[in-house]
Amino acid sequence: MSGIALSRLAQERKAWRKDHPFGFVAVPTKNPDGTMNLMNWECAIPGKKGTPWEGGLFKLRMLFKDDYPSSPPKCKFEPPLFHPNVYPSGTVCLSILEEDKDWRPAITIKQILLGIQELLNEPNIQDPAQAEAYTIYCQNRVEYEKRVRAQAKKFAPS
């Protein structure tokens, strides 16, 4: 494992614990031996107030490669969400998460999670990743928002 990646992720964890947006979660997972795995984080993004996503808490896994922060983490909703920019596998399609697009090593975990929260309610229809959600979003916004509200209710924190 890269010392650069681990040191950056340790800084990220410290900064997150000191200050993070209300309702968001970002925690490194534990290895079988109980030690912390900084390369694999369990996160959760709350649906934004005043949107059909409100009330939901959407679980996301963030996986970092050894060359982080040169390369972005892979962000994957578990379980996958109904959304035009979420692949059926759950992987998020967002330009700041793509090395050859808008990724920059200075982007923080907090910025990534806030960017994904923004994307939930403002899909990028130029870059669809899920045919069904994309089609319904474009053709029947009322039905799309109904499905999103049902999903938010399903993923409401207990």
Rank of each mutant, 00 (worst) to 15 (best):
M1T: 00
S2V: 14
G3N: 09
I4M: 13
S7T: 11
S7R: 08
S7A: 01
S7G: 08
L9P: 01
L9N: 12
L9K: 08
A10I: 06
E12C: 00
R13K: 04
K14R: 15
W16A: 05
W16I: 03
W16K: 05
W16E: 02
W16M: 02
R17S: 07
K18S: 09
K18C: 09
D19P: 05
D19W: 06
H20P: 00
H20T: 03
F22S: 04
A26F: 12
A26P: 00
V27D: 01
N31P: 07
P32A: 13
P32N: 13
P32G: 12
P32F: 06
D33C: 04
G34I: 06
M36L: 14
L38D: 01
L38V: 09
L38R: 00
W41L: 03
W41Q: 05
E42I: 03
A44F: 03
I45Q: 03
I45N: 04
G47C: 12
G47K: 03
K48R: 13
K49R: 14
T51Q: 14
T51V: 01
P52N: 15
W53G: 00
E54F: 13
G55V: 07
G56R: 01
L57P: 05
F58E: 05
F58C: 05
F58H: 03
K59Y: 10
R61G: 09
F64S: 00
K65H: 12
D66V: 07
D67F: 15
Y68R: 07
Y68S: 04
S71L: 06
P72D: 05
P73S: 05
P73L: 04
K76Y: 15
F77H: 01
E78Q: 12
P79Y: 15
P80A: 14
L81I: 13
L81K: 03
F82C: 04
H83R: 00
N85T: 00
N85F: 09
N85A: 08
V86D: 02
Y87P: 00
P88H: 14
P88I: 15
P88W: 06
G90C: 07
G90L: 02
G90E: 00
G90Y: 12
C93W: 00
L94T: 03
I96D: 11
I96A: 02
E98F: 08
K101G: 09
D102W: 10
D102C: 11
W103T: 03
P105M: 09
A106N: 02
A106W: 02
A106Y: 00
T108I: 15
T108G: 10
I109R: 04
K110E: 07
K110C: 06
K110V: 10
Q111D: 13
L113K: 03
L114C: 13
I116C: 15
I116A: 15
E118G: 10
L119I: 05
L119W: 09
L119V: 07
L119D: 04
L119K: 02
L120M: 11
N121A: 10
P123Q: 00
P123R: 02
P123F: 01
N124R: 03
D127P: 00
D127M: 01
P128V: 00
A129I: 01
Q130F: 07
E132P: 07
A133W: 03
A133D: 03
Y134S: 11
T135H: 04
T135L: 12
I136W: 13
I136Y: 11
C138Q: 11
Q139C: 10
Q139T: 12
N140V: 01
N140D: 14
V142K: 15
E143Q: 11
Y144T: 00
E145V: 13
E145C: 08
V148K: 01
V148R: 02
R149I: 13
R149T: 09
Q151F: 05
A152T: 07
K153C: 09
K154D: 12
F155T: 05
F155G: 06
P157D: 10
P157E: 06
